[in-house]
Amino acid sequence: MLKVGLTGGIGSGKSLVAKLFSLLGVPIYESDQRAKLLIEHQETIISEIKELLGEQAYTLEGKYDKVFVSQAVFQNEELLKSLNHIVHPRVRQDFEGWLTVQNAPFVIKEAAIMNRNAGLDKIIVVDSPKDLRIKRLLKRDIHRNLAEIEKILENQKSPEEFLEMADFVINNDEKSLLIPQVLEIYKKLIS
């Protein structure tokens, strides 16, 4: 079974592309969703995050305070690295467990943070112009302002870095059609 990564900058349209692949029957591992689940329910992670960021990383009801954490880590590169060091190995382990119950020609691991040496056979990058990504994010993430979004974009790989690791590129601008691009890649991956 091929392990295929699906990545791209925030607001590029990874989730939409993943949904299109899932409609074709491809199992999708959504790293961000799984990370959220682990962050809220795995005691070891909760303890380590509280140790790193303080008790205020979680609400009194025990929910992960995404707004507080985002504001803290996206203004401090070392804190962001430390948080990633807590969460990413657990997500990798969770993905490996998930793989054991899949039965398909290929699976997709959707993740914003991905490297060429991530143990994946192929990588699909969703590419979208920065101004369009910002427009999408301002509409989607109403709790974030433009400065916060630009800070997040600064902390991510550049479009060039994403494209360097791509085996396949899906252009998600306002001119390109997504479905034909997804179908073309799907056909290549099942052949």
Rank of each mutant, 00 (worst) to 15 (best):
L2S: 01
L2Q: 05
G5V: 10
T7F: 01
T7I: 12
T7V: 12
G8R: 01
I10M: 13
G13H: 00
S15F: 11
L16R: 01
V17W: 02
A18P: 13
K19V: 03
L20D: 03
S22R: 09
L23G: 01
L23S: 06
L24G: 00
G25T: 14
P27C: 12
P27I: 07
E30F: 11
S31H: 12
R34N: 14
K36T: 10
L38G: 02
L38Y: 03
L38R: 00
I39Y: 02
I45Y: 03
S47I: 10
K50Y: 02
E51Y: 02
L52W: 13
E55G: 08
Y58D: 11
T59Y: 09
L60P: 14
K63G: 03
K63M: 08
K63C: 01
D65R: 08
K66F: 13
V69K: 01
F74P: 14
Q75V: 03
L79F: 07
L80T: 00
K81L: 15
V87C: 07
P89M: 04
P89S: 06
R90Y: 15
R90S: 14
R92N: 11
R92S: 04
Q93S: 06
E96A: 06
E96H: 08
G97T: 01
W98M: 03
L99N: 06
T100Y: 06
N103Y: 11
A104N: 15
P105V: 06
F106Q: 12
V107H: 03
I108Q: 04
G119L: 11
G119I: 09
G119V: 10
L120M: 10
L120R: 07
L120W: 13
I123R: 05
I124F: 04
V125H: 02
S128D: 09
D131S: 10
I134M: 10
I134Y: 01
I134G: 01
K135P: 06
L138N: 01
K139S: 09
K139R: 01
D141F: 06
I142K: 02
R144P: 11
E148Q: 15
E150P: 08
K151Y: 13
I152A: 11
E154Y: 03
E154M: 06
Q156W: 13
K157P: 04
S158K: 12
E160T: 05
E160F: 07
E161T: 05
L163K: 10
E164N: 11
V169D: 13
I170N: 12
N171M: 13
D173C: 04
D173K: 01
K175M: 15
S176N: 15
L177G: 01
L178K: 07
P180N: 04
Q181K: 08
Q181S: 10
E184G: 02
I185M: 07
I185E: 07
Y186S: 07
K188A: 09
K188P: 12
K188L: 13
L189S: 08
I190P: 11
